[in-house]
Computed example of a mutant assay.
Amino acid sequence: VIGERISGGVGAVGILKSRDFSRKNIRKGMKIIMTEGNGGGTIATTAIFNGIPEVVTETFSFSDLLTCSLVRDSLADYVYSMTDVTNGGIRGDALEISRMNNLSLVIDDKKFISLINSRVYDMLKMLDIDPFGISIDSILIFTYKEDIVIDKLREHGIRSDVIGYVDDLKKYPIITIDGRELNPQFRESPYTPIKKYIGNNTKFSVEEISKRLDYAIEEAKRKIDDILKNLKASFT
């Protein structure tokens, strides 16, 4: 039985009948294929809050599920890892991959943008929302056989392209092919009025915030343990 950790929660639990496609399999030199990003809950929420209902229908797509099925059933010999561009956007994905494997993603930012659904991207641009820091629900595929993967996806009407490659760890988890750093942010790019009001800027570094969160988690665990001890003591 497996559980895939996605943004702090369990995204799926089930019986693994073949090898896994987890992030730990990513290696230097692999090409990064991205499928078209039509958005999901985050994009739909953005559209609803900002009065752009026509974008909501763009999110009604099963291409992500079809992509995963094709990889599982037809491309398992050529694909080593998959992940979705979800909370925190591709910058968040790169940060998690970097921490796990000590690697960096080098991407073509123009190709990345070109694979976002045009209506979705127009909305993001109009609302000044960073497309690299928000969930667009694309699938990232890591492979050495990019032509085979892209051809198979194209056969089933799924638009995709190579947007970059995996390299040794650099100063940042993700950079563009011309060397521009896409600095990781602590929060996802603000996409509702209240989130925009709060913003994602802070005087604290991501590392300092992470340390404070780790401390808060340990304190919460300690308090839970104390409560459990007291409850057990009351029954003895």
Rank of each mutant, 00 (worst) to 15 (best):
G164H: 00
K110D: 12
R180C: 08
R212M: 15
G179D: 05
L105M: 15
E208F: 15
G199P: 05
I227Y: 14
I136M: 06
F132L: 08
I224G: 07
G9N: 15
E207T: 05
D225A: 13
I134L: 10
K171R: 12
L153Q: 00
Y80D: 14
G199Q: 02
V10P: 11
E4L: 15
F186C: 06
N25E: 12
K229S: 10
K232G: 03
T143C: 07
E155C: 05
M126W: 00
G164F: 00
G37C: 01
F186G: 03
R5Q: 13
E181R: 11
R23K: 12
I175E: 11
A12F: 14
E58K: 13
I15K: 13
I209M: 12
V120S: 03
F60R: 14
G8D: 04
R19L: 10
S81H: 03
R19N: 10
F49M: 10
I116V: 13
R180N: 10
D225Y: 08
E219R: 11
I224S: 11
I148L: 08
T176N: 04
E155F: 02
A44T: 06
G164L: 00
R119F: 02
N38Y: 08
N25I: 05
D122A: 08
R187K: 14
S118R: 12
I175V: 11
R19C: 08
I90E: 02
I116D: 03
D128M: 00
I175D: 06
E207D: 10
G41E: 06
S74C: 13
S69F: 14
I2M: 11
I136R: 05
E155H: 04
E181A: 14
S135G: 13
R212T: 08
H156S: 09
I148F: 02
F132M: 08
T86Q: 02
G179A: 04
E218A: 12
Y121C: 00
S234E: 09
D151Y: 06
G11A: 15
L228M: 12
D64V: 13
V120Y: 01
R19T: 10
H156L: 03
L66H: 13
D151W: 01
L95M: 14
F21A: 07
S205W: 03
E219F: 05
P131A: 07
G199R: 07
P193A: 08
L16W: 03
P131T: 04
I97V: 11
I2G: 09
F204P: 04
D151E: 14
L127C: 01
R72E: 15
A76F: 09
Y80P: 02
E218V: 07
D84L: 05
P193E: 02
P184V: 01
I52Q: 07
I217Y: 08
E96P: 04
